[in-house]
């Protein structure tokens, strides 16, 4: 029984823990997976990749709440989330169908659809390259305040 020699050695050294520890890890993992799935019951995730289920590709949140939970939660709790400015309005569709270019970082032209006067203001007053997201939380739940509660202290731009 040469192949189990290392096991016997471990067993001799650590005793019953050799069995209990890995088992505990497995059990905890199972509990975690079960809890996660219970927390998001029947959350759709028919697609592992974007192009596999184009007919529901407009329900980005449905998959991204599992695939990229932080970004999804940030969006949900932000003003865009409360206002239902859904993902595809800014990011487009993964297969490029529709009007909006599919982009991880949408072009400022997309921001202008609703925030035109603000963008023009910034460009006129500060001459800034209109790249809004370097300062403005496009879908970000700041740890200091939630979307419709005034922050206690203002953050400075660094």
């Amino acid at each position: 029984m040469i192949q189990f020699d290392w096991f016997s050695r471990l067993r001799n050294r650590w005793g019953k823990w050799v069995i209990i520890a890995p088992a505990a890890v497995v059990v905890l993992a199972v509990i975690f997976i079960v809890c996660f799935n219970l927390a998001f019951p029947r959350t759709r995730c028919e697609a592992v990749k974007h192009l596999e289920a184009p007919e529901i590709a407009g329900d980005c949140y449905g998959c991204h709440v599992k695939a990229t939970p932080k970004a999804a939660q940030d969006w949900y709790e932000s003003k865009h989330g409360v206002q239902l400015v859904k993902c595809f309005v800014c990011h487009g569709q993964p297969d490029g169908k529709g009007e909006v270019v599919f982009a991880l970082n949408p072009d400022v032209g997309i921001c202008r659809k609703c925030h035109d006067s603000s963008v023009t203001n910034m460009v006129n007053n500060y001459g800034l390259e209109p790249n809004c997201v370097s300062c403005h939380p496009f879908h970000q739940n700041s740890i200091h305040h939630r979307a419709y509660v005034k922050p206690v202290a203002k953050k400075t731009i660094d």
Binding site: L84, F88, V89
Partner: peptide, 24 residues
């Protein structure tokens, strides 16, 4: 080629996703 909100109307330039995607 695109639609954006009219900043001078009551909506101050804001549009919901339907109005923003009229072109198609």
């Amino acid at each position: 080629v695109t639609v954006k909100g009219d900043p001078k109307n009551h909506n101050a330039g804001f549009l919901c996703l339907k109005g923003a995607l009229m072109t198609s």
